[in-house]
């Protein structure tokens, strides 16, 4: 799938579903089969990075890089780097399920004014 086809909802869905990091890989600038898909991905990427940081998700958990089909070494390096980054950050705090409120969870009894 062309990187320009990555709907930002896919990325958020990945984080929502439990991903600790998301790596988008596209063709090198100038090599996109659809000409400009990777540039579109690049513009979305920077907006998305800023957006997720406002949700308390570290920017480094989302990465974009260019790797062509003939760059096995770079592919391996990019994946390994991403794994290192995510390991260093640790697991992402999970978002509670949509279907329950905090009612009766016990930590609501005292309002802490600190």
């Amino acid at each position: 799938m062309c990187s320009g086809r990555i709907d930002p909802q896919f990325i958020l869905k990945a984080f929502q579903s439990g991903a600790d990091g998301v790596l988008i890989l596209g063709c090198h600038p100038g090599d996109c089969h659809y000409k400009e898909g990777n540039y579109k991905a690049l513009r979305r990427f920077y907006l998305l990075r800023k957006l997720i940081s406002q949700f308390g998700i570290e920017e480094e958990r989302l990465k974009l890089d260019w790797v062509s089909a003939s760059e096995a070494d770079k592919f391996v390096r990019t994946i390994n780097d991403m794994v290192e980054t995510v390991k260093a950050l640790g697991p992402l705090k999970r978002i509670p399920a949509h279907t329950s409120t905090e009612k009766g969870t016990g930590d609501l009894q005292e309002i802490k004014i600190g």
Binding site: P8, Q9, K40, R43
Partner: peptide, 13 residues
């Protein structure tokens, strides 16, 4: 599903 992501996409283009 996600209005913000949809707008982000429109803006990026």
């Amino acid at each position: 599903v996600d209005q913000g992501a949809k707008f982000l996409s429109a803006l990026a283009s």
